[in-house]
Design a binder for these strands. Sequence first.
RNA 1: GCACUCGUAGCGCAAUUGGAUAGCGUGUCAGCCUCCGACGCUGAAGGUUGUGGGUUCGAUCCCCGCCGGGUGCACCA
Length: 559
Amino acid sequence: MDYKSYLAERVQIDGVTKEEIAETIALPPDPALGDYSLPCFKFAKILRTSPVRIAEAVAASYPADGVISEAKAVNGYVNFRVDRKGYAEGVLSRIEKEGPLYGSSKEGEGKTVCIDYSSVNIAKPFHIGHLSTTVLGGSLYRIFRRLGYHTVGINHLGDYGTQFGKLICAYRRWGDRAEVEKGGIHAINALYVRFNEEADEAMENEAREYSRLIESGDREANELFDRFKDITLRYVKGIYERLHITFDSYAGESFYLDKMQPVIDELKEKGLLEESRGAQVVDLEKYGMPPFIVLRSDGASLYGTRDLAAAFYRKQTYDFDKCLYVVAYQQNLHFKQLFKVIELMGKDWAKDLVHVAYGMVSLEDGAMATRKGRVVWLEDVISRCVNKAKEILAEKNPDLANKDEVAETVGVGAVVFGALYNSKIKDIVFSYDKALNFDGETSVYVQYTCARAKSVLAKADGAKEGGMLPPGDAEFELIKALGAFPEAVVQAAKTYEPSVVARYAVDTAQKFNKFYIDCKIVQAESEELRAFRLRLTRATLTTLAAALSLLGIGVPEKM
RNA sequence: GCACUCGUAGCGCAAUUGGAUAGCGUGUCAGCCUCCGACGCUGAAGGUUGUGGGUUCGAUCCCCGCCGGGUGCACCA
């Protein structure tokens, strides 16, 4: 039940609509004040009365009922207190009904969201900088799906460009089949790095020639390229598996090569294309932006051209209601240009394209530099976090069965959570000290809380679980938190911020731990109270697991 | 130079999008395991929300100026 609209329905203020009242209803800063509040200041002008008086009038005229137990005016606010039993029953029964899918809604029914994320480059290993787009996109995918949207996860592979000519050239000169098979993506990357260090004029020319050969469909060049692509995909799929990330499409840049021409033709038809310094561009000066280059002066396409074709293809293929691009804010201008060009082409769906921008990752000694070896590989971060989890488990829970499995869940969870906990726009300075610290506001805290709850439920050993008693303060604070989950999911989707869910999980875990310290559960004073508290414990567990699952993080049985 | 963006406790970040006494974690200090998991909990200390104006009953949030950091600004992605 939606208490805000319930209250709005029953509060009468002349000249103010229900919607306005519903929008104005807020949560008091201190639960001691009440559960919901209505600040009356903005109504004072319309009614030409003091807010204090309005609040008093609203409180006095509020019809008492079984849902709201109190309406009290305080300094221009009306503070409402809900009937705790009724509220608690509503929250708990919804959680019990929806289970692991708690927070579901019909908001997205019949709507499709495309999400472009992770987008790996062929022949380049994942470093810590790729983590954000991967887990942000993966989480948004789950969040939108929870809200009933049909979701399409797209890995827009970087599988086209002059770098592959260089790679083939390097492989021909220094490479070795067995070595590449054995060394995998890092061996390939080493070849590419070496090319950039050592290539002379002749090699550059050779590389250009190989690029041409790939494009013209030369068998040998393409076989090599496909092998590099294959090795890359095998490698990233291993990482995606550990991070619980999935995609519905791996259509990358090369996929759109034969789909650009119609879009270019349409640009021409609409008189948007013009020549400038030898290149074909869309002039955006009117909009305060540099021109959008469609074709280079040598006639070749650019990544923007491929992005343009991809947008049209996605609209055609998926008929999306929204298409998200989870890409770092460095590309702000590029997406602004891209979206503007599509708008200028008269496509009303340009408004449905969203650049979900996030901050950059650097290291303590400055920006990452692959060439200088100043780089943190994602797989190293994962394995170090999992090893750390293993160490802690060995120390704190030496008798634990399936230690490796639990360490994987805990360690990987910490990596993912660390990338999702703060607002996505914030820059991150990566350090192992921080990444390996599992204290405080982390997934480990939430997982620990779950393990604690599970342990309590196990200890109850089949005792009666259920029923309802008037909740005390700690119990009710927890219940309110549990009830806030669906709203948090909606908020996360609306702002494209999985951090809302991550913070929700920590906040709710804190509330549970307070409840746990304050209230005896298994050893409650009466059987009824124990049954109720066990019910509350189980609902918390369901909710925390639901929240973590939206982030792609699991919950171990014990840890 | 222009555009975008960030600036909140020593450090890392929140603040329900304009609401009440600005919160949480970490770090420091002092406590709590012969009561269900101490990877936990309680308390103390720590703030002129970068700065100066403006709008408003009310500003961390909106507007303008300034200071500081980051990013981008034509054929790379």
